[in-house]
Computed example of a mutant assay.
Amino acid sequence: MPPSSPISPPDSEPDRAPVAIAGLVSALRGRRSVTLLANNPTLTPRDLAAVPCAERDAVVHFNRAPFLPRFLSGRHLNVLVLRQHFDTGRFHGWPTEARTLDAMQAAPERFHLLLCLNDPRSGALPDPGAVPRSRFAADDPAVREDYPLVPDIAFAAPSTGFAVLMLLRAHGLPGGETGRWHRALVRLGLARPRGLLLCGFFDTPEGRFWPGHSWAHERARIAGQGLRDLARR
């Protein structure tokens, strides 16, 4: 996976990107905890130190993932979620920096790429080498259900972190079972009390970097899931 050729053509992808996260579900099965780590500049070193990252844990990073370098040396699973740009078809945060590419090449079993696709026919898909890759469509009903569009922004959509949380909620189990979170976590093999955790999803300056997400709706929906945010005080 040399840095000079970080992408591959999407010839093998279908015209419409299906939900294809069986590989991700398999990778998460049996994990002691799964932490969704927000791309949130208000997070502190203390917050990041609270993220479980032992061998049976998993940490999910989003787009440019500024905190990822801190987690490269662990033996846990790093899930990198890359979202396709609305206009260019390329992916936020890819190609990633050299030290991340080196870590992925050295230990591909400790990484998984999850691609959020707008249109798989445009742009080129990241080529993670031996690292497993899953995908889902940005307009998947599990993600867009009841999501209010932001007025005067044509490309308004759920944030990447919210999209993945809703995707796991609806499709994180074989057969697309839904049910309550505690049943889902048991079926995934996630042991209580850690289970599924959040880090940095409840900052106070909501939406100051991009107005295209309905932050109030997302915060209300996330709060209703009863999940713990490690950075919420």
Results as ranks from 00 to 15, higher is better:
residue 1 M to D: 06
residue 2 P to V: 04
residue 3 P to I: 00
residue 4 S to T: 14
residue 5 S to C: 08
residue 10 P to T: 03
residue 11 D to H: 14
residue 13 E to V: 10
residue 22 A to L: 03
residue 23 G to H: 07
residue 25 V to R: 15
residue 26 S to F: 10
residue 27 A to E: 02
residue 30 G to Y: 14
residue 31 R to A: 11
residue 32 R to Y: 07
residue 38 A to D: 13
residue 39 N to K: 14
residue 40 N to S: 08
residue 43 L to N: 03
residue 44 T to G: 14
residue 46 R to P: 02
residue 47 D to A: 04
residue 48 L to F: 14
residue 49 A to Q: 15
residue 57 D to E: 05
residue 60 V to W: 13
residue 64 R to K: 13
residue 66 P to Q: 02
residue 68 L to A: 12
residue 69 P to H: 07
residue 71 F to M: 01
residue 77 L to N: 10
residue 77 L to W: 13
residue 77 L to I: 09
residue 78 N to W: 02
residue 84 Q to I: 03
residue 85 H to S: 05
residue 89 G to Y: 08
residue 99 R to F: 03
residue 100 T to R: 03
residue 102 D to I: 04
residue 102 D to T: 13
residue 104 M to W: 09
residue 104 M to E: 12
residue 106 A to N: 14
residue 106 A to D: 15
residue 106 A to I: 11
residue 110 R to W: 08
residue 114 L to I: 09
residue 117 L to E: 10
residue 118 N to R: 14
residue 119 D to P: 12
residue 119 D to T: 03
residue 119 D to Y: 11
residue 124 A to S: 12
residue 126 P to G: 02
residue 129 G to I: 00
residue 132 P to G: 06
residue 132 P to Y: 09
residue 133 R to W: 05
residue 136 F to H: 03
residue 136 F to N: 01
residue 138 A to E: 12
residue 139 D to A: 10
residue 143 V to K: 08
residue 145 E to N: 09
residue 145 E to H: 14
residue 152 D to L: 12
residue 153 I to E: 00
residue 156 A to M: 02
residue 156 A to F: 02
residue 156 A to L: 01
residue 157 A to M: 12
residue 159 S to K: 00
residue 160 T to W: 10
residue 162 F to G: 00
residue 163 A to L: 11
residue 164 V to G: 05
residue 172 G to M: 08
residue 173 L to Q: 13
residue 176 G to F: 11
residue 177 E to N: 08
residue 177 E to C: 09
residue 178 T to L: 09
residue 180 R to I: 05
residue 181 W to H: 08
residue 182 H to N: 05
residue 182 H to Q: 10
residue 187 R to F: 06
residue 190 L to H: 15
residue 190 L to Q: 13
residue 191 A to N: 14
residue 193 P to D: 01
residue 194 R to C: 06
residue 195 G to Y: 08
residue 195 G to D: 03
residue 197 L to E: 05
residue 202 F to K: 02
residue 202 F to D: 02
residue 203 D to F: 08
residue 204 T to E: 15
residue 206 E to K: 12
residue 208 R to N: 00
residue 208 R to Q: 01
residue 216 A to L: 09
residue 216 A to Q: 14
residue 217 H to C: 07
residue 218 E to G: 15
residue 223 A to Q: 15
residue 224 G to I: 04
residue 225 Q to P: 03
residue 228 R to W: 07
